[in-house]
Design a protein around this nucleic acid. Sequence first.
DNA 1: ATTCTCACG
DNA 2: ACGTACGTGAGAATA
Length: 617
Amino acid sequence: MLTFRHTIASESVTVNVPEDAADLKLFWEWLYRARERGPIALDTETTGLNIYSAGYRLRTVQFGDAHEAWVLLYERGGWHAQYAREAIQRCREVLIHNAAFDWLVLDEHAGIRLEDLAPWTTDTRILAALIDPRQPSEGGVGTALKPLSAKWIDPAAPDTQGGLTKVFNSLGFTKETGWAGIPLTHPTFLLYAGLDVILTARLAPMLRRELERLGVRDQLVTYEHEIARMCAVMQRAGLLVDQEYAAALAGRLAEEAERHGAVAARYGVASVGSPGQVAEALLGMGERLTERTKGGALATDKAVLLPLADLDRDWQRIGARTANPLADAVLRGKRASKWGVTYAERFMTKLSTAGRLHAAISPLAARTGRMSVTDGLHQLPSSDHVIRRAILAEPGHVMVSTDFQAVEMRVLAALANVRRMKDGFVNGGSDFDIHMFTAKLIKGRNATPRHRKIFKGAGFGKVYGGGITTIARQTGAEESEIAQAVAAYDRAFPEIKRASSRWQRQAFQNRMVFISATGRRLPLDRDRSYSVVNYACQSAARDLLGQAMLNVESAGLLEFCRLPIHDELLASVPQRDADEIAREFQRCMSMDLYGVPITADAEIGGRSWGSLYGADY
DNA sequence: ATTCTCACG
DNA sequence: ACGTACGTGAGAATA
């Protein structure tokens, strides 16, 4: 047995590493005693983050309580792996920090189905996110184990991740290669592996107590664990990539980027990605640049360059001036390189051995509770189908996308109890258009599509908390016109302003934390408390999607789900049943929120995701 | 590490 | 007193 000692919160803790059969028997005896006393903390160390890559290995499995950890050398196989697997199956309640990762590792590499482990899991990261969802950059502690341990357990709690990176470097590895390369029995590696479970075991009761003190409902905690499990199921399924197509696309975009880069070079811009170079060259050509970035530099973003290239927001020629060839080359070169590198190439390099992309779905990423997804899958261009064309439904399947209809406006109407808006949604029928409804309410029967656009801008302005200037910039209308529209909007829907004041007041009385409709804690920034309207709407919409996912699972459709996208569920469904399944998705995503109907629309595509955006396959 | 830019809902 | 567009992930350049 290898044994390490450490001090946490001035208590001595022990990390045991069984080496032979006798040691493993001691572990087994500990496990049976420990699981009588309470939940067992569980963790894994692996060769990296890309669970589905070739050569991926599960290195250790750790078990622990507040005082003792056992690190099982899973990589050695045989009895070590056998004991680890059996032990996990014997645990009833387990504590994991960021459970989705370990669920998926154990599911893929230890034969333990995540469906079997998830129901017994408490994820300390979920608990932490429900106490304070802010990332460190927003003034929160974040949800990483180290800062949480420092806050709740011991300010001197070891930085096991950061500490290991240093060890990796001293051994000639990088942060990335160290996990696979470090010798299995390296003392620091084993010590830190053990300390992680001890910290998790200590964190759980502290966070539970805090949730209770804050009055966060158990129901919300349970709900979040269900959502996390369903997101993990989707991550495990992954998305099928059309490799031949993606490779050709990456090549084509790289060539395009190079072509435009060569044009830019003729005007003295060596790299189109350098805002400084672009600004200098444009000034040298006699262009006037007036917009500034947040940092005070001259802005050369798309909004600035499009007019210089005589292009509108859809990249169509305006005919108002001679197009500046540099601005045109920079725009096209940057787009080609972003699309090529961030999307097409990433699809190729992130592939699993089975040719699938397993983007990590983080169910509680944003401070509003919104989910986020890695590998750019939430940000694929929607203006063009070429990128999404690379993502395929399963063989014999078609893509089905079901999205909520104007969900944030409906949520606003429901939460702020906006009378005329609610009436519209209730009586409007299936093809109800809230923005045209508003335009008609204010402009009368001769409201035009242009009016619709203005009031759509005003509506989003309300949901986002925008001002006249920003709404004008976004819609492209005159400020005076927007000012009138916003004033008319406020008269038509006076409840919104009142709700905003009420919600801000409630937050002020609760130490700047607004409690959402589902009991979620939404901390506000003191100097922008107006954003409470957006937070309330965004987080309620997120919880509607969560409820929709639960409905989808109850209907037996979770296996078809591939990706949640804020107000949309993307699915791969058997072609022959597509109509029926699409109707089911619509039903699962339709519900009532305080008397406002939340409705959904399913679209059946072809084999590729791009088919829902105009591609013919 | 931070800034800027760009992709999405 | 007044007014503020919200939330993300990712890559390249820059410091």
